[in-house]
Amino acid sequence: MTTHPGAVPLDGTRPAGDPAAFHRDLRRRHGAVVPVTLQGGAPAWLVIGYREVHHVTSHPEVFAHAAPAAPEGDARERRAGALAAALEAVGPLWLRRTAERIADGLVDRFCATGEAELTEQYAAPLAARVLTVVCGFPDAEAAVPTAALAGDGTGLAAAVADLVARRRTTAPPPGTGNGAGADVVSRLLADPRALTDEEVTRDVTALFTMGHRPTADWIGNTLRLMLTDDRFTAPFSGGRHHVGDALQEVLWDDTPVPHVLGRRATRATHLGGRDIAAGDLLILGLQGANSDPGIRQPTGPDAEAAFWVTGLTGISTAGNRAYLSFGHGAHRCPFPAQEIAETTARTAVDILLDRLPDIAPTVRETALTRRPSPWQRGLTALPVRFRPTAPRADGAR
């Protein structure tokens, strides 16, 4: 693939600052399929049209998964089916109680100080700890994978491999998972599709790396919205029904995974008015697709005018789960994993607002910054203050 004239550097700086303005500008200049360059100058196409992303992910025979390590065909179906079954067996009530216990324990660490930084003191460790319990790490061993996820990932695969080897020959200790042998690693090893230890290690390690940061950023982005937006800053004692609305709004407008790498064209084709050559790399612009004005319902004073001009109202995001934030097609995030992430995120927000009802940011919203990455959208920090309160009398649940 050759670099297209006028290609846009996809370095994360502009989308991190104002993704809505970034995508409006790209659409005005290039349409639904945008020529871009990645770090190091590699050329690619960024797909930001909702229908175009849907088309790419619905036709793997034309747009194959680009990750060289990703299993394809029967191997992918076998491993994906086993992982989905292992995740689906996670009990929702047990998961909620587990997330509550972890959230309470984290709040207990800072609630008496009157201030905290919610990204690294709360959202990130909470998302990591829930995953360690779901996968079967005993509490005494959770520090290693949690620290690996907080850093560059060093040691994570080794910790998972060690857990897999032990689970192959021994049952989990009492209190691990939601029932004897009920953690994800144990279920994968017992699955009739007969996954090898190496396959289980790879898939569980991928579950950690692909599930931790997006869930942590979903929590952080939702807390930012609820603590800074006038629609959500009513007294939390009477406004908790807004948590679900905030979680869904974030997936539409502030999604934790704005771009996904990607797909490669298996043959020459056309997409969004562009000629795509065989071998061309495509980046799925999930945030751009979610904000596509061709499918979004106008709101405010422009809504009626838009209806009379186009005759269409588009998608209303209220209560609508048609966002592409979890991907689409064969390589989308498994639905049980989405449910685990949503339960974790909702519980995190619920517990924090219950425990610290007067919580408020210590800086203006305009001073909050994002990590400059095109692949992740999360806050660098969310500092808050609140009235100091005592830890729970009964300790962490």
Rank of each mutant, 00 (worst) to 15 (best):
P68M: 08
P43G: 05
E72K: 13
H55E: 15
H65Y: 09
A75W: 04
A42R: 14
G73P: 08
G49S: 09
V53Q: 09
W45K: 01
E72D: 13
E61N: 12
A44H: 03
G49C: 07
G73E: 11
A44D: 07
L46G: 08
T57S: 14
P71N: 10
P43Q: 05
R51F: 00
I48D: 06
R51C: 00
A66F: 06
E52T: 11
P68G: 08
P68N: 10
E61P: 00
E61R: 14
T57E: 15
S58N: 13
P60Y: 10
P71K: 09
W45C: 03
V53S: 00
A42H: 05
P43C: 02
E72W: 01
Y50T: 00
V56C: 04
A69T: 15
A64D: 15
A64P: 00
A44N: 04
H59Y: 05
V56H: 08
G49W: 07
A75M: 03
V47K: 02
I48Y: 01
H55T: 15
A67C: 02
Y50V: 05
P68A: 13
V62H: 05
A69Y: 12
G73Y: 09
A66Q: 13
F63H: 06
H59Q: 14
P60M: 09
L46S: 09
H65L: 08
E72T: 14
A67E: 13
D74F: 02
P68E: 12
H59K: 08
E61C: 00
H59P: 00
V53C: 12
P60Q: 11
V47L: 02
A70H: 11
P71Q: 08
H55Y: 10
F63C: 03
A69G: 00
A66E: 15
P68Q: 03
P60H: 10
I48C: 05
V53D: 07
A44C: 07
R51M: 04
E61A: 12
P60W: 09
E52V: 03
E52H: 12
V56E: 08
Y50W: 14
H59L: 11
E52F: 00
G73N: 11
A66C: 06
S58C: 09
G73F: 12
E72I: 02
P60K: 09
T57L: 15
W45S: 01
P68I: 08
A42E: 13
V53E: 06
P43Y: 07
E72F: 00
F63Q: 02
A75R: 14
I48K: 01
T57K: 04
D74W: 03
A64Q: 13
E72A: 13
E52Y: 04
P60V: 10
V62D: 10
D74S: 13
A64V: 13
V56G: 03
I48A: 03
T57R: 07
V56P: 01
V47D: 03
A44Y: 07
V56T: 07
G49K: 05
F63S: 05
P60C: 10
W45F: 07
W45I: 00
P71I: 06
G73K: 08
